[in-house]
Simulated assay, not measured.
Amino acid sequence: MATSSTGLIDRPALAELNTLSTAPAVVRLLSHLLTLVLAGLIWRQPGLPWAARLTGLLISGIALATCFAPLHECCHRTAFRSKALNDAVAWLAGLLSFYNATFYRRYHQWHHRFTHQPGRDPELEDPVPTSLGGYLLELSGWNWWSGKLRGYARLLWGDLSDLPYLSPEVIPQVRRSVRLQFLVYGVVLLLSCIHANGFLFWSWLLPLAVGQPFLRFVLLAEHSGCSFSSDGTANTRTTLTVAPVRWLMWNMPFHAEHHLYPSLPFHALPAAHGRIAPHLRHLAPGYLAVHRVLLRDLPALALPA
């Protein structure tokens, strides 16, 4: 994905920020997976108090759902120096978070190309919460789960020829990737049944369902209530948040910076923020502040007629 030519960052500084480095991604990925595993072990440890176990369930669920963040970063191929390593980690992170990296990379490229532009940005095909009921349904993860099931059914068996971001040459590659993903899920299900340990449900599906509202809460803030124009300083929101959220989300809360300069690696976004912040139309002091604003006028989130 090409770097935006916004001119908000001078060329020497941009060249320095664009330097890829594998070490930050290794540290971030290992810490993310360690959080997921340790919290999962606490959740599945029967000898612990229920308060500790439920805390483990919540943390493991959030860590599992936010595997979307390394998927996203690696789909940009900016996390690691190696293209092959980016692609492998993206696929595995997608496996954990119920995304398919091969499909998502193309879908996401189109989102960057036509950010928040109705009729062009594929993200705007998802339901827009314009009422309190719709807002709560979105945060619950229901729309995401139902959309995923419909989407995967189409990727496995349906007609994909009308999707502008999938060329005829890419479609067989996407189908193979999705089929391999579901083969892995099938093997995990089979082993879970053989050993009668309920691993697939208790250690993956349930935690993912518990963690999904957190991810929806974060992602809903990225573009909701922003301009439907092509202006990158106005159609995307940066949200200042606490360090653990920035860590789990691989600095994705610096979202306007990411959209303006999508070739920047995640570890360069805080520095980019220092240069870009004065130019942003939507800079929020936190996610609660964003959602308070959204809740004041949910009908305003509707797509323009």
Score class of each variant (00 low, 15 high):
residue 239 T to L: 00
residue 302 A to S: 15
residue 225 G to K: 02
residue 63 A to M: 08
residue 88 A to F: 12
residue 220 L to F: 13
residue 54 L to I: 12
residue 130 T to H: 11
residue 290 V to T: 13
residue 15 A to V: 03
residue 115 T to C: 09
residue 37 V to L: 07
residue 30 L to Q: 04
residue 278 P to V: 10
residue 25 A to E: 04
residue 43 W to T: 10
residue 140 S to D: 05
residue 300 A to H: 05
residue 107 Y to Q: 12
residue 124 L to S: 12
residue 289 A to T: 08
residue 289 A to P: 07
residue 11 R to Y: 04
residue 74 C to N: 08
residue 177 S to N: 00
residue 43 W to I: 13
residue 68 F to Y: 13
residue 239 T to Q: 01
residue 199 F to T: 14
residue 292 R to E: 07
residue 303 L to V: 10
residue 148 K to Y: 07
residue 187 V to A: 03
residue 246 R to K: 05
residue 134 G to W: 04
residue 114 F to R: 11
residue 218 V to D: 02
residue 209 A to R: 13
residue 2 A to S: 14
residue 294 L to Q: 10
residue 221 A to H: 02
residue 230 S to Y: 08
residue 184 V to W: 06
residue 170 V to E: 12
residue 172 P to L: 02
residue 302 A to K: 14
residue 133 G to S: 02
residue 83 K to I: 10
residue 48 L to H: 07
residue 178 V to G: 04
residue 32 H to C: 08
residue 63 A to R: 12
residue 266 F to C: 13
residue 239 T to F: 00
residue 121 D to L: 01
residue 195 H to S: 13
residue 239 T to K: 02
residue 287 Y to F: 08
residue 291 H to M: 03
residue 78 T to H: 00
residue 58 L to F: 09
residue 95 L to F: 06
residue 28 R to V: 09
residue 50 W to T: 12
residue 123 E to P: 08
residue 3 T to P: 11
residue 124 L to P: 11
residue 3 T to M: 11
residue 206 L to D: 01
residue 158 G to W: 04
residue 237 R to W: 01
residue 283 L to Y: 06
residue 128 V to M: 14
residue 96 L to E: 09
residue 171 I to N: 03
residue 152 Y to I: 05
residue 97 S to W: 06
residue 208 L to D: 00
residue 113 R to W: 06
